[in-house]
């Protein structure tokens, strides 16, 4: 590990570099656009088959959007670390003394950005497929919710993804570890989106407290994750 403590400026710089590296890898491979996004849209379509009722679909649309997000997230997180372990890049970064906090923040933000992009697609799909009513105030709530929730999911996914990455047979561990932890975010995001979509008679303004909760979760997981990430991935 580096001898001198990393200054805040250096930390932010390193995190930015790691984030851009990950996002560039995604842009080059286009896995998110070509595979994960269609996969998540298919999930939304399958929900329609399974629930088979327009009224119910409209009512539960918020939950379905975030369920599809959670399932797709598993794939995106696996991908985020498969890139590293394939050529030992993660180990190389750590041996080189890169502060694991910067590594964590950079990967989390990259993951968060990708999940945001995914959610834009999912919300749009819900708008068309589930006949969701969206007005500007609702759209704002949904937008803020997506950003904050994906931030939190990015932190959580990177933290536990690092643990489940690498050796054979670990990938199946990821859903088991991840899904209990994302429950608070799922609950908050679904309730906020419910308000944004005005499903079940919810008022748009009811969404803001939930968004506030998502902000708290994001901050907690960000801080805790940056401390815990290093020890967890140390091999």
């Amino acid at each position: 590990m580096s001898a001198a403590p990393t200054s805040m400026k250096r930390l932010v710089n390193l995190a930015r570099i790691v984030m851009l590296k990950d996002l560039r890898a995604e842009v080059n491979s286009r896995v998110l656009v070509n595979q994960v996004a269609p996969f998540s849209v298919v999930i939304m379509i399958l929900f329609a088959f399974a629930l088979d009722n327009d009224g119910i679909l409209q009512r539960v649309a918020p939950g379905l959007v975030w369920l599809a997000t959670m399932f797709s997230m598993l794939v995106v997180v696996q991908r985020s670390f498969a890139v590293e372990t394939a050529d030992g890049a993660l180990d190389a970064l750590r041996v080189a003394g890169v502060d694991t906090r910067a590594l964590f923040l950079g990967k989390s933000l990259a993951l968060g950005v990708q999940l945001c992009a995914l959610d834009v697609i999912l919300v749009t799909t819900a708008f068309f497929l589930y006949n969701v009513q969206l007005e500007p105030s609702g759209l704002l709530v949904v937008f803020v919710t997506v950003v904050l929730a994906c931030c939190g999911l990015g932190f959580i996914g990177t933290l536990y993804g690092g643990l489940a990455a690498g050796a054979r047979g670990r990938e199946t561990l990821l859903p088991l570890l991840l899904l209990p932890v994302v429950a608070p975010v799922l609950i908050g995001a679904t309730r906020a989106t419910e308000a944004g979509f005005k499903s079940g008679g919810a008022e748009v303004s009811e969404g803001w407290p939930w968004s506030g909760l998502l902000l708290v979760f994001a901050v907690i997981f960000g801080v805790v994750g940056s401390v815990a990430f290093g020890p967890l991935i140390d091999e």
Binding site: A183, P184, I187, L213, F217, I220, P231
Partner: peptide, 24 residues
């Protein structure tokens, strides 16, 4: 080391989950 960190994460996250579920 892994287990110890995970155990402490669990102690943090369980009240969080409980809190969310109570509000829910």
């Amino acid at each position: 080391r892994r287990s110890a960190v995970l155990a402490l994460l669990a102690v943090l996250e369980i009240p969080l989950v409980h809190f969310s579920v109570v509000i829910w």
